[in-house]
Design a protein around this nucleic acid. Structure first.
Length: 447
RNA sequence: GCCCCCAUGGUGUAACGGUUAGCACGUCGCCCUUUCAAGGCGGAGGUGAGUGGGUUCGAUUCCCCCUGGGGGUACCA
């Protein structure tokens, strides 16, 4: 079994493409098959080396490797031309000067249900001769048999006047030459498949089996685009998602297990994934669920592992202690700074928080807290908790009436890592310093 | 216009014709509690796009129609 992932470098790798790559990868790894990476760069206008590099980077980030390639479609033009000559010679293709307008005019005159058939000429673009009458059946692992009546097909142009070949011709040849046995790609290619099958047939080659994946849509049900937040793999990375979580989430977009298992390690995914079980309906990309799943991954990681991830993400070393106290509250790596920043760099300015918790009552509480924490003795998490709970006890108030003023004094906000952990991490001197500053003017001074 | 694909709660999905249609995200409420988050518990939410036709003793599950989405219809990929 040989499968392939064949992105065209006309932009970044979108999550739809990432999902296609993943499904190919899972299928290959599951079956012990070979995954070939091919770059379809025959669109000379839009394909750029930068895009190629970006796609490769996205795949590497997702930790999806390949066994052969990357091969570039553009470098195979000689072979394409050779195949083209063969078809011209055996009569399966012919030259024609008919233009797109001619085809349209033909249809307008003869009714849209009859495909265009050109008349062979000595020059012009090359068209494939569609056997008519006839029918082509796509044997699809997901959709079953999809039949196309040749009457509905126009003789497609397979090579431009300048001799360069077109996509539907090039893919067919490349797939055959690479010995691809299973083509797993997006449903947007379904209508192209009969044409490619016809090319393969004209070449007298063996056709692969296909699997057309349902398309992915944005949250509003429309096509995925930049407008709906993270749409490319790179954006996902920048948004602080973990590759493993993204893989897990993407695997579930269009596929599910019989027993409803949701969280699966990559090994489990490989073991359980079955392309034939893939759903036929288009799915929407739901970032909320990705966030949730990512949070599960964050919490399942060892602190050391997460620390590495956070330090990589933020580009700042020595974050271990902070990561440890933030891990429980993070869903993405991007959630780290809002939590850790104020602890590390000093209180931020949040007037609403200050007003609510550092009024006369809050300051009174803070004084008590200061006294409780100011004495000698250990300053570990346990001791801190003990001291703070004693204040709660003594004042006869609810826990949050003590913890919130303190939290605002220390970080400026009402959201932070666990208060005991935060105090312990800050240490006695810094904690007291921040409390004093808050007490001094109600406006926590910057560190 | 024509061709093709799709159709289970807001979202992703499960259930090889017979179940009170399951699970997860989200949402709501409660508990825990250190706000938020996380965790625990519980609720609402689908009669299956149609009050369409057919097959069947029986249809969410099979067929047709209708409707609604989506894709294609390029000398783009």
């Amino acid at each position: 079994m040989r499968v392939r992932f064949a992105p065209s470098p006309t932009g970044a790798l979108h999550i739809g493409g990432a999902r296609t790559a993943l499904y190919n990868w899972l299928t290959a790894r599951h079956a012990g098959a070979t995954l070939v990476l091919r770059i379809e760069d025959t669109d000379r206008e839009r394909s750029t080396p930068a895009n190629v590099e970006q796609i490769l980077q996205a795949l590497r980030w997702l930790e999806l490797d390949w066994d052969e390639g990357p091969m570039f479609q553009s470098q195979r033009s000689e072979r394409h031309r050779e195949a083209l000559e063969a078809l011209l010679a055996n009569g399966h293709a012919y030259r024609s000067t008919a233009t797109a307008e001619d085809v349209r005019a033909y249809k307008a005159a003869h009714g849209a249900e009859r495909g265009f058939r050109g008349v062979p000429e000595d020059e012009g673009a090359v068209r494939l001769r569609v056997p008519d009458p006839g029918e082509t059946v796509v044997n699809d692992m997901i959709l079953g048999e999809v039949r196309t009546d040749h009457a509905h097909l126009d003789d497609p142009v397979i090579a431009r006047v300048d001799g360069s070949v077109l996509y539907n011709f090039a893919v067919a040849i490349d797939d055959v030459d690479a010995g691809i046995t299973h083509v797993i790609r997006g449903n947007d290619h379904l209508s192209n498949t009969p044409k490619q099958l016809l090319v393969i047939e004209a070449l007298g080659a063996q056709a692969p089996v296909y699997a057309h994946l349902p398309l992915l849509h944005g949250p509003d049900g429309r096509k995925l685009s930049k407008r709906h937040g993270a749409a490319s793999v790179q954006e996902l990375q920048e948004a602080g998602y973990l590759p493993g979580a993204v893989r897990n989430y993407l695997a579930l977009l269009g596929w599910g297990t019989e027993d409803d298992t949701t969280i699966m390690s990559t090994d489990e995914l490989i073991a359980r994934f079955d392309i034939a079980r893939v759903s036929r309906n288009p799915a929407r990309f739901d970032e909320q669920k990705l966030r949730w799943l990512n949070g599960r991954y964050v919490r399942a990681m060892s602190t050391a592992e997460l620390t590495r991830g956070v330090e990589d993400y933020t580009g700042r070393p020595g974050l271990g202690g902070l990561v440890e106290i933030c891990q429980e509250k993070m869903q993405t790596l991007a959630d780290f700074w809002p939590l850790a920043g104020p602890v590390l760099d000093g209180p931020i300015d949040d007037p609403a928080a200050r007003e609510r918790w550092l009024g006369p009552e809050g300051r009174a509480v803070l004084s008590d807290v200061r006294a409780a924490l100011g004495g000698p003795g250990g300053f570990g998490r346990e001791q801190v908790e003990e001291a703070l709970r004693a204040v709660v006890e003594r004042r006869g108030v609810k826990p949050k009436d003590v913890f919130q003023p303190l939290r605002v004094a220390l970080t400026g906000t009402t959201v932070s890592p666990g208060i005991f952990e935060t105090v312990a991490l800050l240490g006695r001197d810094e904690t007291l310093r921040r409390i004093d500053a808050a007490l001094a003017d109600g406006a926590p001074a910057a560190a």
